Simulated assay, not measured.
Amino acid sequence: MTRRTGTHPDLAHPRVGAALFSTWRVGTPERQRQAVEAIAHTWERRPWPAADLLAYHVYTGHDGETLMHHSQWAGEQAYEAFVKTHRQERNDEIDTAVPGIERVGLDRYRYYRSEERAACDHRVPGLIVTVRVDFEPGAADRRGDWIDLLLRTPPGPGAHHGLIAAHFHLATDGTHVLNYAEWETAEAYDRAIAVPVGEEWERVRTYPGVKGFTGTRHHHALGLVPE
Rank of each mutant, 00 (worst) to 15 (best):
L170T: 06
A165P: 00
D52R: 04
G144V: 10
P157S: 09
A74I: 13
E116Q: 15
T42H: 08
D148S: 00
T60L: 07
L54A: 13
A166T: 15
R132C: 11
P155Q: 10
A38M: 08
P47F: 02
F168M: 01
I128R: 04
L106C: 07
G126W: 10
R90W: 11
R103C: 08
E136Q: 13
G138V: 14
T42L: 11
G144C: 03
R132Q: 12
I94K: 05
R132K: 13
R113F: 10
E102A: 06
P99K: 06
A81E: 14
H122Q: 14
D148P: 00
T130M: 01
S114M: 09
D63A: 00
R103F: 07
A140R: 08
R142M: 07
A97H: 06
L127Q: 01
F168D: 06
V58I: 15
G138Y: 11
R103D: 04
R46D: 05
E76W: 09
A165C: 12
N91A: 08
T172I: 14
D63F: 04
E115V: 14
Y112C: 12
R108I: 11
W48P: 05
E93P: 02
L163S: 01
H160W: 06
A171E: 11
L163V: 09
S114E: 13
P155T: 13
I101K: 09
A81P: 02
P155I: 06
V133M: 04
R132D: 10
R87K: 12
L163H: 06
R143A: 07
G105K: 05
W146S: 00
D95P: 04
